[in-house]
Amino acid sequence: MDGVFVSEEADARKPQTRHFALATACCGTVLGDGGWMVGDNPVNGIGGGRSAGLHTIWIGNGSFWPPDVPGPDHTVPHACAAIDLLLLYSADHARTTA
């Protein structure tokens, strides 16, 4: 884990881009460097992350995606599947940049 960001301790909440900028700063990076938003809320988490320029993974947990909301980059059934997907992307990125 690169950092921890608790939105209740900051003057920014999802889906505000400022929320995501502060969170990435906690990880020692900036929004322009890219990154991922993984969450279960279509509007606040996924929509906010997409608006901030992040790749998105929605953890569906058996729910259906709202038809009137732009979709995520990826949908997974649970958190473990999101971690597996992130590890896959990380390994692929390491191979292409080596």
Rank of each mutant, 00 (worst) to 15 (best):
I59A: 01
D68H: 14
T75D: 09
A94D: 14
T17S: 04
G34K: 12
A91T: 13
V30I: 11
L87A: 09
A81F: 12
A79Y: 10
V43D: 12
N61Q: 14
L22E: 12
G60D: 15
R50K: 14
H74A: 09
E9C: 07
D40W: 04
A23Y: 07
H74C: 06
C27M: 07
V76Q: 13
T97F: 13
T24E: 06
C26N: 05
E8V: 06
R95E: 08
A91V: 06
V4D: 08
G3P: 09
G34Q: 09
D68C: 01
S51C: 07
P66W: 03
A81E: 15
L87Q: 14
L54C: 04
H55A: 12
W65P: 00
E9D: 15
V43K: 08
V6W: 06
I46A: 05
R50V: 02
A23M: 00
L88F: 03
A81Y: 11
C27I: 02
C27L: 09
T17Y: 03
A25D: 13
W58I: 01
C27P: 00
F20S: 03
L54M: 07
P15Y: 02
G32L: 02
R13Y: 13
A10V: 07
L87F: 00
G32Q: 13
D33L: 01
G39A: 02
D33I: 00
D11P: 01
H55M: 08
C80R: 14
D11N: 14
I57D: 08
A82V: 12
G28D: 10
P42T: 10
G53W: 03
E8I: 04
A10Q: 13
H93I: 15
M37H: 06
I83R: 12
G71W: 10
M1R: 11
G71I: 01
C26R: 14
W65Y: 09
D2Y: 04
G71N: 06
G28E: 08
L86F: 10
D84S: 14
M1C: 11
N61M: 07
G53E: 05
N61K: 06
T96M: 12
T24P: 00
G49R: 12
H74D: 11
H19Q: 06
L31Q: 12
T96P: 00
G47T: 03
G71F: 05
P42V: 02
G60W: 00
C26V: 00
T96N: 05
H19A: 10
H19P: 02
T97G: 11
G71P: 05
T24H: 10
A82S: 08
V6P: 03
E8H: 13
R18T: 12
G35C: 09
G35D: 08
L54R: 02
L88H: 14
V6Y: 07
G3C: 03
V38Y: 07
N44A: 15
W65I: 02
G32E: 15
I83F: 07
T97E: 15
T97V: 11
R18V: 12
C26P: 00
E9I: 00
A23E: 13
A12E: 04
D73H: 14
C26W: 02
G34A: 10
P42H: 08
F5V: 03
D92S: 12
L86R: 02
F20L: 05
N41W: 03
V4W: 11
T56S: 09
W65N: 08
V38K: 06
D84H: 10
A82P: 02
K14L: 00
R18S: 11
N41P: 00
I59K: 07
W58F: 04
M1K: 08
F5Y: 15
